[in-house]
């Protein structure tokens, strides 16, 4: 009830999207760079949840539509598909954006990162 008042640090989900399924499997070097980025955030004690990587392949993903139509694979209506997410701690959304901008995927394969503030429930 009273914890909300003292909570100044906000949490933001960073949702990763890739353009192509073939970008999903990073090379060892790319993986190392991504890990460095993630560990860098954790090193600042700003990682709230290390999140998950979500498998996008036909065997690992289903999309259920409202008309009960089920399709195999990740949701790709918007072309890009979600490859994973993490949750970070930041004072402002701008700070979270700065963290996201430093992510190596932009140099590696492109894609996008959506930054979304997490609703704090009391």
């Amino acid at each position: 009830m009273f914890n909300l008042k003292f909570k100044t640090v906000k949490e933001f989900a960073l949702i990763f999207r890739l353009k192509d399924i073939s970008d999903f499997k990073p090379s060892p070097e790319q993986m190392q760079e991504r890990m460095n980025w993630l560990a860098g955030i954790a090193s600042q004690n700003k990682l709230a949840d290390k999140g998950n990587t979500l498998l996008p392949f036909a065997a690992n993903a289903r999309t259920i539509q409202s008309n009960n139509v089920i399709t195999d694979g990740a949701y790709t209506e918007i072309k890009e598909f979600i490859s994973g997410y993490i949750v970070v701690k930041a004072d402002t959304i701008d700070e979270a954006v700065e963290m996201a901008k430093a992510n190596p995927i932009f140099d590696q394969v492109g894609g996008s990162i959506e930054v979304r503030e997490v609703l704090q429930r009391d």
């Binding site: 190392q32 890990m35 090193s43």
Partner: peptide, 25 residues
């Protein structure tokens, strides 16, 4: 050192401490 860094990367994800953060860098 690449191996040590990778281990530190994983360590900092499960157990943050300022000293671990510094050792990692």
């Amino acid at each position: 050192w690449e191996n040590i860094l990778q281990l530190y990367n994983r360590l900092i994800l499960i157990a943050y401490s300022p000293i671990t953060a510094l050792n990692r860098v």
